[in-house]
Amino acid sequence: MNSLSLTLFDCVVLVTLLGLAWQLLATPDLFKAMVLFMSFGLVMALAWVRLAAPDVALAEAALGAGLTGPLFLSALHRLRGTRKGERRQQLDSIEHRGKIEKVTQRTSGRIIYLLLRILFAGLLLTLLVHLATILLHVEYENPGLGVFVAEQQEESGVISPVTAVLLNFRGYDTLLEIMVLFVAVVAVWSLATVRFSEKSGQVSPIQQGVVRILAPLMILVAVSLIWQGTHLAGGAFQGGAVLAAAGVLMMVSELPWLRLIPSLPVRLMLVFGPLVFLGLGVSCLADGRFLEYPGELAGFLILLIELACGLSIGLTLACLFVGGRPVDDLVDRGQLEEGS
C-alpha cells in the first residue's frame, strides 16, 4: 500500500476513535455505551497495529473488545436484575435531571450552570493542550530501553523481545501484576456468592451444540497463542483472555456440568499459575538469585511459566465474569442463616 492511502486509513481510524469516545460518554443508555465501548476497543486494536505494537493490539482485541463487554453486560444484568438496582437507576436519572431542571428554570441559574461547564471544559482543555505541547517538544533522540533489550536478547532464552521483557528482564513486574489479578478474584469472592440462575431453558440446542464444537477450538487457539509468545506476538495474557472467552461462552450456554464445579479445584487452578511463577523464581534463590533462570533452561522455564499463568489468567477472568464465589465455598452454619 502506498503511503497516501495509509495516511488516509490512519485519519479514518483517528476520527472514528474520537467519535466513538464522544458518543460513548454522551449516551445516557448504559447498554448502548457498553456496545460502543466494545467497538472502541476494536478500533483501538487497529490503531495499535498501525503503531507497530501487535502484542498490545492482540491484548486490546482480546480484553478491551472481547472480555470487557461480557463483564459490563453481567454487571448491567445484575443492576437490572434487582428491584433495588433498577429503582436506584431510575432515581438517579430522575434526580439528576430534576436538579438540573430546577437550576436551569431560572435564567440566572442557567447562565451559571453554563459558565461552570465552560469553565470546567476550559480547564480540562488547557491541561490537555499543555501536556500535548510538552509531548511535542520532547527531544526524540533518546532511544529508550529498546537498545538494551536488543543487546541482551540472546541471553533471555526467547526470540520475542516483548516476552523477553515481560518474563525475563522485568519478570518481577509481571509476577506482581499476576498477583494483582489474583487479588481481584479474591476481592470479588469476598463480596458475593454466585447463584447460577436456575436453568432458563432459553438456550437453544443449536447454540449448545455450536459451543461444544467451538470451545475446544478456542482452547487450542489459546494454547497456541501462549506457545507463540516465545517467538511472535502473543503470550500468557492474550492466551488467557481467549481461554476466558471460551469459559464465558460455555457459561452463557448453560452447560449443565459448569454449575457443579466445586470450590477447591477452582482455587487450586487460580493459585497454580502465580505459585509456579513464584516457585520457579524462588528455586533459583538457593544461590542467591531470584528470578534468574539458568541460561540453557531459560526458554523452557519461560514457556512453563507462561502456560501455567495463561491457565490461571483464563480462569481468573472467567471468575470475574461469574462475579462471585462458588456456591459450595465456605458452606457453614452462617451460609444457611444468611440465605434464609
Binding site: L268, L270, L275, G281, L330
Partner: peptide
Amino acid sequence: VSASFWMVLPVVLPLAGGLLCFLWR
C-alpha cells in the same frame, strides 16, 4: 550476593503466604 538476597524475602514470603491462605482455608 548471598547477603543481599535477603531483600527479596519481605516480598516473596507474604506473597506465598497470601496464595497459601487462599488455598487452605
